[in-house]
Nucleic acid binder design. Sequence first.
RNA 1: GCCCGAGUGGCGGAAUGGUAGACGCAGGGGAUUCAAAAUCCCCCGCCGCAAGGCGUGUGGGUUCGAAUCCCACCUCGGGCACCA
Length: 854
Amino acid sequence: MSRLNTAEVEPKWQSAWEEAGVFTATRDESKPKYYVLEMFPYPSGRIHMGHVRNYTMGDVIARYKISTGHNVLHPMGWDAFGMPAENAAIERGGHPATWTYDNIADMRAQMKPLGLSIDWSREFATCDPEYYGQQQAMFIDMLDKGLVYRKNAVVNWDPVDMTVLANEQVIDGRGWRSDAPVERRELTQWFFRISDFADELLSALDGLDNWPEKVRTMQANWIGRSRGLEFAFQLTAPTNGFAELPVYTTRPDTLLGASFVGISPDHPLAKSLEEGNPELAAFSADCRRMGTSEADMEKAEKKGFDTGLRVRHPLNPAWELPVWVANFILMDYGTGAVFACPAHDQRDLDFCRKYDLPVTDTFFALDNPRPVEDEAFVPPKTEPVRWVDHFAGLDVATGQEAIDATIDLAEKQGWGKGVTQFRLRDWGLSRQRYWGCPIPVVHCDACGVVPEKKENLPIELPRDVSFDKPGNPLDRHPTWRDCACPACGQPAKRETDTMDTFVDSSWYYARFTSPRAATPTDAEDAAYWMNVDQYIGGIEHAILHLLYSRFFARAMNQTGHLPEKAIEPFNALFTQGMVTHEIYVTQDDKGRPVYHLPESIEWTESGARLGESGAPVQVIPSAKMSKSKKNVVDPVNIIEAYGADTARWFILSDSPPERDVEWTAAGAEAAFRHLNRVWRIATDAAEASDAAGDAAEDQALDRATHRAIADVTEGVENFAFNAAVAKLYGFTNTLAKSKASGQARRRAVATLAQLMSPMTPHLSEEIWALLGNVGLVVRAPWPKADPALLVEDSVTLPIQINGKRKSEITVAADLPREEVEKIALADKAVQKALAGGQPRKLIVVPGRIVNVVI
RNA sequence: GCCCGAGUGGCGGAAUGGUAGACGCAGGGGAUUCAAAAUCCCCCGCCGCAAGGCGUGUGGGUUCGAAUCCCACCUCGGGCACCA
C-alpha cells in the first residue's frame, strides 16, 4: 500500500487535464451547453477561504455537468478596478495598474493548485483596455439610445482633502483620513435610466424560479413599487415664485390626520428661502453635514425647522398647515415634500412630539379605540379599522380600501391623481477617481457634451499620474484632458469622471462568451452560451450587483449587444455563506485587544495559549475571516499541508452551502484522514484477488453503491453538498466493512471515485487510474442508479401513542394497511396503553409511521 | 431606523408536517505496538439507580403528530444606492 502524495499527484492531474484541454470551451451544437459562473474576485492579492468555497462549489457543478454530457463553460476573470488600488498607491506609492496586475498574477498562482475546471484561455481583467474599451463603446450606444443622461446629485465631500468620499470612507460623519466633518455637495453626474425599467425589473422577478426567494423579495422591496396620490397644497401666500407644493403620499386616506407639510432641505423652495433666512440657512447647512447613506439619515436625530409658511388643507381651505424643513425627507424620492400624519407613522409622531405639533387620530383598532400617545398606530393595510370621520364615507374598512377610495375621490373631485411610484432611483455611475473606466465623452465649448468617436476607443487611462495629492489625478494631468471635439474638431476637454465599478461587473458574464471579440459581444457566441445556467456568489450582492446586471442585460439588448433571451442573464442563482473562524485575543498593557493568528495558538488542557509565551488566550466565537481580527487561514498553507482535495472536501463537508461555514483545524485534519482512508480502501481493493466471494455480500455492496449514486446525485443537483459528503462518508464506511469479493469491491471503489470526483478530482483520477481505467474520470459518464437495487423489501415503522414514540415494528414494505394496523394494535406497548379498550383513532402513514390515539 | 435571513447535543450539522440528533469533530473506553504515530472496534443530547421524564432561541397557537406551519418577542448576520 502506498501513501497518497498530494504534492506529486495533484500537479500531475492538473497537467493531464490541461494537456487534454478538458476545460477549454468551444461551441458544440451536438451537446447541451451549460454555463456555470462564480462571481469573479477582486484582486486583493491573496485568495481566501471564501474564494475556495465559492470556486469549489462552482467546480463541483461544472465537473458534474461535464460528466452528464454537457458542453460546459466555466470561465474566470478579475473585477480589477476600484478604490483599494488607488489607496495602495496613496499609502505605499507605486501605480494602481502595477499593484493590480501583480495581485492578479499572485492570485492566479494561488488559485491554480486548487485544480479548478476553469477555461483559463478566456481570462480577462476589467482594467484591461480591451475590456473597458468595449464598455466605452456600449456606453456610447446607450447614450445614443437615451439610456444615459446627466443630472445633479449629492456626494460626500471632504472639505480638507478636497475629494469625494465613498460611504465607507465616511466614519461617524467624518472623512476617514482627514477626520473633517463631511459635507453634502452637488455635482453634475452621469446616470443610467434604470428607473425606467423599474416595473419590468419587478415583474420579471416572477420568472426567476431558480433564484432564492429571499433575493427576489429583497429586490422587489428595493424597487419598491407603490401606488399613491399626488396632489398639491396651495400656499396661503405665494412665496419666491412658489404658489403650491406638490406632494406624493402612499397614505392619502390619512389626510385628515395631517399635522404639517415637510420638505427636504434640498427642495427648491427650501433653498430659495435660505437666502432671506440665515437661521434656515444654518439649519439646512447643518442637515448637509451628514453622510449621504440612507442608514446615516435614518439613524440621525430627526430635526426640523418651521419656515413660517402655511398651506391650505385640500379638503378644507380654512384649515392651514405649517411648512417645515425636515432632515429626514429625501429630495430623490417622490416630490421631496410630504405631509406628516403622526397618528399613523412613528417617525412623524416622534417629530410632532418633539416640536409640539398636533396629533389627530384618523382611525382606531376595532377592539381598542384609544387615542395615540407615544406609539403610532400602524396596522397592516389589510386589517379592517374603524374610521373616525372619513371624507370618502367609510366606517369600517381596511387601509387599502380607504387608500383606493381616497384616490378615486380625489380624481373625481379633480384635486389629485393616483400615481405609481418606485423607490428605485436612477443609477449614478460617475466616480471622481482615476482607477476606473473613463467615461468616453468630450466637453466642447461650442458643441456641449459630445460622445467620443468609436474609432478612438479605448480612451485609455494615462500611466503617468501621481497620487501624492488628494482628488482625481485625471483632473490635474497636464495633457490627458486635451483633445479635439469629435463633432467640430476644435480643442475640447475630456470628461474626467470614471465609471462605477458596478458597470464593469454588470456585463462580464456576457464578455466571457467571446472574450477576444472586437465588439463587446459576438452575436453567435452570445446566442450559444447565454444565459448563465448557474450563477454562484455571496448574498451581499443580492440587490445592487444583481439588479444592475439585470438592467444592463436589458440595456445591452436594446443596443444590440445581447439577444432577447438574455435579458435575464442568470437562469439560476445560488448564494453561499461566509467562511468564519474563531478569534484569539489577548490584551496589551493598556487593556487593548491584541489579535493572534490561528497558527500561533497552542491547545493545552487548560485552554488556548499563545505558542511563544504560553500566555492564556481568550477565544471569541466565530466571525467572518478578516485581516484586522487575524482569524484568517491562508488556503495556500492548507494546500501545502494537506493538498487541494482536502481543502475542497472540508469546505464542502461541514455546513450547508448557503450558510456560514466555520473553518476548524480539526475538521481539516479529519478531511485529510478521510481521503487517506479512501485511498487505502482503494489500494486494498485494487490488490484483492479475483476469486468469487459470498454472493449475498456482493449484492449488499452493490445495493449500497446504487443507494450512494442516488443520494449523492440528488445532493449535488440540489446544492446539498454537505449532505452528499455525509452520504459518501456512509458509503465509505459500508465499503470498508464489506466482506464482498475483490471484484465487487473494485466496482464499488470505482463508483466511489466517480461520485467523489467533482469534489476531490485529483484523488479520484488517481484511484480511477489505479483501477486500470483508460481515460480520465473527469470525462467518464456519471454513474446511473439501478432502480431495482434501490427498492427495500422491509420497513421499520415507529409506533406512536398519542404522538409520542413508544415502539416500532418491522413489516414488509408492501404490506396492506389493514395488516399493518393489526400488527400495530398487537404490539406490546400498544396493548399496555389500551388496557383492553379501543383506540379513538388509528393513523397509518404507509412506509412512515403509525400513530395510535387513545 | 428600514428590508432580508438564521438560531437544533460540548462543536459543525441531518431531518422541510411523520422515529430529533444521520454524517463529521471533540471526548471516553478498548485492540494493535517495546513505545509512539497511524489504523481498527465500542460508547457518547440532558435529568434519573431505574422506570421514566425533558429536549430544536423564548412565549403562545394550529394538528392525531411541529425543528418544520401561524402569531409575538429575543439574539446574531447580510443589505441600505460611492466597499467589492
